[in-house]
């Protein structure tokens, strides 16, 4: 492991290999970024992003930011991108959005703004940096990159560090609150208790199923209640609306039946 670190450090220190590495990786990263915008499927975008992140991790290590490079791989490419993929699974891996723009002028304005922004930033960078030669981190990293960052974090930036910890906890809580959903339907226990506590006990045993005492196609024949009257609720509302229900009065149990007996 240590060998790998030192190898990386040596890469960063020598100029030509770094340039080679940059000119290979940077165009690929830009290409991947453009690809992110044009691919249809979100999962492809995610993979392209992962590629960009790994490239960046290598750039970090090349620039004497060993700790950040590793964190970039572990946290970003490892955790965050996995989270993205996880959500993509949840939403649907195959979900592919149409690329047709439906807000008038949005795309044109976006590209114009991007061109302007990019041009101005490039111009500014050119004006600001040109005469400088990098100081390099050899001195700062003399005790080791991790130790150096730790030194900074726990002395100068300790207050920000604590605040960030509070932020993390808040974010975790927030995610939990957001992701939590109340139960969508009441439980069977709740429903049965409610039936017994309701105003009338007529439906305590549940609605009578249709087709009881069927003499016809069962579904459109209403059930009879224990007292012999017709239970109108036992017929599907759809059938009722369609007019496919048979008039229920003939099925009522009349006292005449008792007379026959």
């Amino acid at each position: 492991m240590h060998n790998l670190f030192s190898a990386a450090l040596t890469i960063g220190a020598t100029k030509t290999p770094e340039a080679v590495q940059f000119w290979i990786l940077a165009p690929l990263a830009v290409l991947a970024a453009v690809g992110m915008l044009v691919v249809k499927k979100a999962v492809h975008s995610a993979l392209l992003l992962a590629w960009i992140m790994i490239s960046l991790a290598i750039f970090y290590i090349a620039q004497d930011a060993l700790f950040l490079g590793i964190v970039q791989v572990v946290v970003y490419t490892g955790a965050v991108m996995m989270l993205f993929l996880f959500i993509l699974m949840l939403v649907g891996v195959d979900s592919s959005g149409s690329l047709v723009e439906n807000i008038k002028g949005q795309r044109g304005a976006a590209f114009a703004a991007a061109l302007g922004l990019g041009g101005l930033l490039t111009s500014l960078i050119g004006r600001a940096i040109v005469p400088h030669e990098a100081i390099g981190l050899t001195v700062s990293n003399s005790a080791g990159n991790v130790q150096g960052i730790a030194q900074e974090l726990f002395t100068q930036y300790v207050w920000a560090f604590e605040v960030v910890s509070a932020l993390l906890i808040t974010a975790a809580l927030g995610a939990m609150v957001l992701a939590h959903t109340p139960k969508s339907s009441p439980s069977q226990r709740f429903l049965s208790t409610a039936r017994f506590r309701g105003e009338s006990l007529s439906a305590t045993a549940g609605l009578a199923p249709s087709g009881v005492f069927a003499r016809h196609n069962a579904v459109d024949v209403p059930a009879l209640l224990p007292d012999g009257s017709v239970a109108a609720e036992s017929i599907s509302a759809t059938l009722e609306a369609r007019g496919d229900m048979i008039v229920s009065t003939p099925f009522e149990m009349k006292p005449q039946i008792e007379e026959e007996n």
Binding site: A65, I135, L153
Partner: peptide, 15 residues
Amino acid sequence: SRLHGTLDGQVASFF
């Protein structure tokens, strides 16, 4: 961070 020879940039990046 590399340009200035200090680790502040890296700390900011960490945050």
